[in-house]
Structures are given as C-alpha cells and as structure tokens.
Amino acid sequence: MAQSPAHGSDHHDHHAAGHHDPQDLKLLGFWIFLVTDVIMFSTLFATFIVLRGGTDGGPTGADLLEINGIIISTFLLLTSSFTSGVAVLAMHQNKIKQMIIWLVITGLLGAGFLYLEVNEFLHLIHEGATLQTSAFWSSFFTLVGTHGVHVTVGLFWMISIIIQIVRRGLTDDTKGKVTVFSLYWHFLDAVWIFLLSIVYLMEVM
C-alpha cells in the first residue's frame, strides 16, 4: 500500500509512505491513557477501601454524607455525558452550531456538578471533616477530589476545543479533539458511578 506508486504526491496527506493517520494514532493513544487513568482511580479506590475504617474515633461517612445532594450531582453528570454524546452526533452531521450548543450545555452541567461538589466539601469542612481529620476523610477527599479535578480539567479542555472550532471550523484535527474529549467525558461518568456506589451508597447504607 505505502509503496504503491499509483498515489500521487497530491494525496500525500493520507497515503504518503510512513505517514500514519494522526487521528487514528491519537485515538489509540488516548484509550491507553484512559487505561492508566483507570489504574490511578483503582489505586485510589483500593486506598479508600483499606482506610475506610480508619475514622480514628472521629465522624464516619454515615454521620456526615448526604445522599440527596449526590443524587442531583449524579443526574447532572449523567445528563452531561448524554449531551456530549449528542454533540458528537451533531459533529458527524457537520452541524457546527448545534454541536457547540450541545458542548456548552455539557459544560454547564459539568460546572453545576462541580458547584455541588465544592458546596458539599465546604459543608463537610464546616461539620469538622477535613483532610486532616482521619485516614477515612483523607482518602474520601482525595478520591472524590481527584475526580473533581478531572472534571475541572475537562471543562477547560472543552473551552479550548470550542474556541478552536470557532476559529478553524470542523477539520479532521478538531473533529478528533471532540471525539477524544467525549471519550474522556464518558470515562469520568463511569468513574463517578463507581464513586457513587462505593463511596456514597456503601457508606451511607
């Protein structure tokens, strides 16, 4: 294929010898990155599970965690995952405007999720549960916080992608970015499901 002399140099964008489709490489690279992120979260989950008993006589999860706020957060994040999927669909139909609107909605939902999370943390700190309180709370804040940082990074990333699309339109390159971003966003959703069940439901129930 690569050696075939039939391909003229005007096609070298896709077929030049030794040149591989960059979107293809990026997508695979990103999948592997997600594998590493899965391992990171697994390590944090393992730490949380090992240390969940280490409340050191202080407040426990059941004492302070409130499930109601979490249900709203979950709803926001799950919906944002759905809207990011819709954005990708719009992208495949080359509907730039629709796609951007859906991305903005995704971002707003994500921001809402973060707002609730920050509020929850402030509430917990007010109730006397901080990073320094005990091993349980250290691992709680680190695990949930790491997910929160991922969501924050995702938001900034999305803003950069929207700006680039507005400037350059939909090219192979910007399309690739949206695809990868949406993959990331779904991944955060999946992690949240585990957080919800292992951290919140199992603690409170």
Partner: peptide
C-alpha cells in the same frame, strides 16, 4: 496482605 492490613483499623 492488604486486606489483612486493613483490619488493623479495627472497623
């Protein structure tokens, strides 16, 4: 051994 060590916290 991780589980074994976790019981150290006596939950």
């Amino acid at each position: 051994s991780e589980e074994a060590s976790s019981s150290h916290n006596g939950h």
